[in-house]
């Protein structure tokens, strides 16, 4: 649905060059929620702004719904009619909501429809419908200043949906909200994704956001996509930083002569309770040091750190059993080493 190829953005100011995006290839499938995560300055904002060409990429192409936007853009700095029409079919929500303070909630939602040239009656019908969808039907006549942050973002979402977009871009939509409100906004996005078949591309620095709503995720560092894939693909990738951050496990060996291993469940396997099977089959005591698991569609997804009695040499067979079950097993050599990725976003 959204594809970028070799997307590069270089900012030039007073002779200095800053590369914000460095050959980004992104592929967002239709109907999925795709999260791009990274620290401040990783290039997330530039990326999402390049998708609807609010920022002109220095090179590379952006294709949304089969339409090559970079080709529509032309050479001038200003957006031509075709690009503007394409933009009106891409919804966007912002971290700071960006609602017009001089307009009522309803008028804010009507704004994109005004731009599209709809008649007054059609506008107000559509706006009220959308406000109902986001649960703010009773606030139509209020001004944004009278709303809470979460309500403002709901208005922002309703406004983004006014043009019946197939694609919604979310620029840190929950970063200015408290955890409770964040959850309700993410639920709303999830619902919209399912009900309307909306493809959502969101950027965030909060690992929780990715964990809560995303089907796929990409990790950005220094203007490049370092890892990318569906959540189970990421888990299946040995040494994936993103998987480690999404499903953080920790815990030290309780003494000498112990083997600590990280077991990764990535959905394809693990329909059976393997840990208890392992325990029973080999008659060993297993302690679970830490686990971060989710159940998605009846399958277990996540990681678990377990401790087996004895050295590695003694445990070759049980570990082989786990691998046979289709699980991914990593031996934790130096337990003290924690995943250092994205400290701010990780919650245990």
């Amino acid at each position: 649905m959204i594809t970028t190829q070799g997307l590069t953005k270089v900012y030039r100011s007073r002779g200095r060059e800053v590369t914000a995006l460095d050959g980004v290839d992104l592929h967002v499938r239709e109907g999925e929620v795709f999260g791009v995560i990274g620290q401040s300055g990783a290039g997330k904002s530039s990326l999402i702004r390049c998708v609807n060409l609010l920022e002109r990429p220095t090179s590379g192409t952006v294709t949304v719904a089969g339409q090559d936007l970079t080709a529509l853009a032309g050479r001038g700095a200003r957006a031509g009619r075709e690009l503007r029409e394409a933009r009106s079919r891409i919804g966007m929500v912002f971290q700071h909501f960006n609602l017009l303070s001089s307009r009522t909630v309803q008028d804010n939602v009507e704004l994109p429809l005004e731009i599209l040239g709809h008649s007054g009656q059609a506008r107000s019908r559509k706006a009220l419908e959308l406000l109902d969808l986001v649960g703010l039907a009773d606030k139509a006549k209020s001004y944004p200043a009278q709303l809470s942050g979460g309500q403002k973002q709901r208005v922002g979402i309703a406004r983004a949906l006014a043009g019946d977009p197939k694609v919604l871009l979310s620029d840190e939509a929950t970063s200015a909200l408290d955890p409770e409100t964040t959850r309700s906004i993410l639920e709303l996005l999830r619902d919209l994704n399912r009900q309307l078949g909306l493809t959502v591309l969101l950027i965030t620095h909060e690992m929780d956001v990715v964990k809560t709503v995303c089907d796929s995720a990409a990790l950005m560092e220094g203007g490049q996509i370092v890892e990318s894939g569906t959540v189970s693909e990421l888990l299946a990738t040995p040494g994936s930083e993103l998987a480690a951050a999404l499903f953080p496990v920790s815990g030290d060996a309780s003494g000498e002569d112990r083997t600590v291993i990280d077991v990764t469940f990535h959905g394809e396997s693990a329909t059976q309770p393997v840990i208890s099977q392992l325990s029973r089959t080999y008659n060993i005591d297993i302690s679970i040091l830490g686990a971060a698991m989710d159940t998605v569609g009846g399958k277990q997804v996540g990681r678990m750190r377990i401790e087996l009695p004895g050295r590695y040499e003694d445990n070759v067979v049980p570990i082989g059993f786990l691998r046979e079950q289709g699980l991914q097993v990593e031996i934790v050599e130096n337990v003290a080493q924690e995943p250092v990725l994205l400290k701010e976003g990780v919650t245990k």
Binding site: L54, R87, F94, L111
Partner: peptide
């Protein structure tokens, strides 16, 4: 005027006059 508002209207397909 907050630049974010300008960006919002651009993202809706508005031109400079809008």
């Amino acid at each position: 005027v907050d630049g974010g508002l300008v960006e919002a209207v651009q993202s809706m397909g508005g031109n400079t006059w809008t």
